[in-house]
Simulated scan of single mutants.
Amino acid sequence: MLDSKSNRQTIKVSINSKDDKCIDWAESEVVQSDYIIRTTTIYDALLSNTPSRLQAVVLDENEEISFNENEKPCRYKMFIIGDSSGTTPLLVHNDLIDSLKMSETFIFNQIKREETHDKMILSTSPNSTISHTTNTINPNLHNMEESMLFNQIDIQQINTCFEEIPNLQKEMICPSCKINLIPMAGKGHLLKCGNCSKMTWCKSNDFNGSVVLQIDNQASSFFAVKNILQNFFQQQNPNVPMTSENLSKYYLLNGPWKITLSHFHRLILGIHKI
């Protein structure tokens, strides 16, 4: 008997005689933790705002890409995974790439969704784990062609305008979820992500500014790497005070700009005047 609201399960155990008559019995109540991540389907994971646990088979793989982030070598690889609900691209980072093999089934923990090229896909995070399983999965391939045609272009240089600069004040963002971190009560030097709960030490050189760009006539939000907007502004306007108002006015009125960005990481990597 399972109470879905409280995650309580009552187990009754009886000891019977050879005539199947009850000699003794006992009852025990087991409480399941609310923090256990249950296995879900790919379809549900693509709709979830919290990290998911999946069991899926690897159906396809693409070329591994290497890059540097904050002067640290990194790599990623796009796989296509499938289960009974369908298929989806999965962006796998760094050493987790080596865990996967074609046509085999794996359990994926702490997998998050992210929007890339106007499509929701799945991605590993710093907390993700991948383990092999002997379970057999018969994937539903109804959207396999769509998954294979997904645009895998990451780093791209475009000419575009800033549509909005919501925040040029310095705020810390989560390196995994790309959302603002929340200060911990009574711990001014520690910040915490409300999505993945990752904690970060507050360091001024990690501050980033959020912006909205026009890409293919649609508004897309990105973050700027290591105050790149402030640094470029200072180079171009050495005698102008670097206030939030001056920064916004300069970028909004002097476009279009030639911008190098990473779609998968939602980051502006470089900016130049056209």
Rank of each mutant, 00 (worst) to 15 (best):
F108L: 04
F232E: 03
Y76E: 08
R8V: 13
S84F: 01
F264G: 01
P183R: 11
Q152I: 15
M144E: 10
N205A: 12
H189I: 10
G86E: 02
V225M: 08
C22W: 05
L269V: 01
T41H: 00
L213C: 09
E64T: 09
M172T: 07
E163D: 12
S103F: 15
Y35H: 06
I153E: 05
K77Y: 09
S262Y: 05
I15V: 10
S128G: 05
S17A: 08
D60K: 10
D20H: 08
E171I: 09
W201C: 10
N195K: 14
G194D: 14
N68E: 09
L141I: 13
L190Q: 11
T136M: 13
Q157R: 03
W257R: 00
P166H: 15
Q214F: 02
D118K: 12
K203S: 15
W201Q: 14
P238M: 14
I274V: 01
I153S: 02
L54T: 00
L46H: 02
N135Y: 06
C196V: 07
V30I: 12
Q234H: 12
I80G: 03
H117R: 08
P89Q: 03
S17Q: 06
L141A: 10
H93T: 06
S221P: 04
N94S: 11
N227P: 02
L54Y: 00
K112V: 00
P126C: 09
K119Q: 13
N180V: 15
I42P: 02
T134E: 11
T243D: 11
D20K: 10
N239Q: 11
M148E: 07
H272C: 01
L229K: 01
L47C: 10
K198I: 15
P89F: 09
I173R: 07
L181V: 13
I158W: 04
N143F: 05
I97S: 03
N140E: 06
D19H: 11
P51L: 03
T87I: 05
S210M: 13
N195W: 03
V31K: 05
L149R: 06
C74Q: 12
N7P: 01
I130A: 04
I228L: 14
N62A: 11
L168N: 06
I155C: 08
N246P: 07
N237K: 13
N217Y: 02
C161R: 05
K112G: 02
L269D: 01
L181Q: 11
E61M: 10
C174E: 07
I173F: 13
K187L: 15
K18I: 12
S48M: 04
T243W: 15
S17L: 03
F162Y: 09
T134F: 14
N68R: 07
P126Y: 08
P256L: 00
P166C: 15
K203M: 15
D60N: 12
I37M: 08
Y250P: 01
S197N: 14
W25F: 08
I274L: 00
N231P: 04
N159F: 04
K12V: 15
I165D: 04
P126S: 07
K101G: 07
T136I: 15
S176C: 12
N7Y: 08
